[in-house]
Design a protein around this nucleic acid. Structure first.
Length: 113
DNA sequence: TCTCGACGTCGTCACGCTAA
DNA sequence: TTAGCGTGACGACGTCGAGA
């Protein structure tokens, strides 16, 4: 199952420059319960132990990545929400400016008659 | 009731970036 | 150079509404 070429663009920041990638204060990254820290590498010798260590490392990595993906998605959602509310604000602002422009035009335009 | 497509969520893999 | 992290992409799965 090969993936196609990845299009990594980093577009989150490139587009506007004023909105760093999902820059929201991250919660404390405590590991979920059940995570056991590694035994000291010096104590592993037999192939069996090495295999167990590799498995353990992989499971730890998967667990961390699972959590990282959740956090990443949470931040992304928040970021999108933030953008949406910004759009709403800007639309209101735009509307007001257009109205103001019309008012000024009315005031400044020479009378027809 | 069944089927189907759209949509959302989750876990995993792959890859780029960065700090040590 | 390497380990660890963040994130895009993918596939699997569940849910929901529409149409037969």
């Amino acid at each position: 199952m090969q993936k196609p070429i990845m299009a990594v663009t980093g577009d989150e920041t490139a587009a506007t420059g004023d909105m760093p990638t999902y820059q929201i204060p991250a919660p404390t990254t405590g590991l979920p319960q059940g995570v056991v820290m590694a035994a000291s590498p010096g104590s592993l010798h037999s192939p069996q132990q090495l295999a167990e260590e590799a498995t353990r490392k992989r499971e730890l990595r998967l667990m961390k990545n699972r959590e990282a993906a959740k956090e990443c998605r949470r931040r992304k959602k928040e970021y999108v929400k933030c953008l949406e509310s910004r759009v709403a604000v800007l639309e209101v602002q735009n509307k007001k400016l257009i109205e103001e422009l019309e008012t000024l035009r009315d005031i400044c335009s020479p009378k027809a008659d």
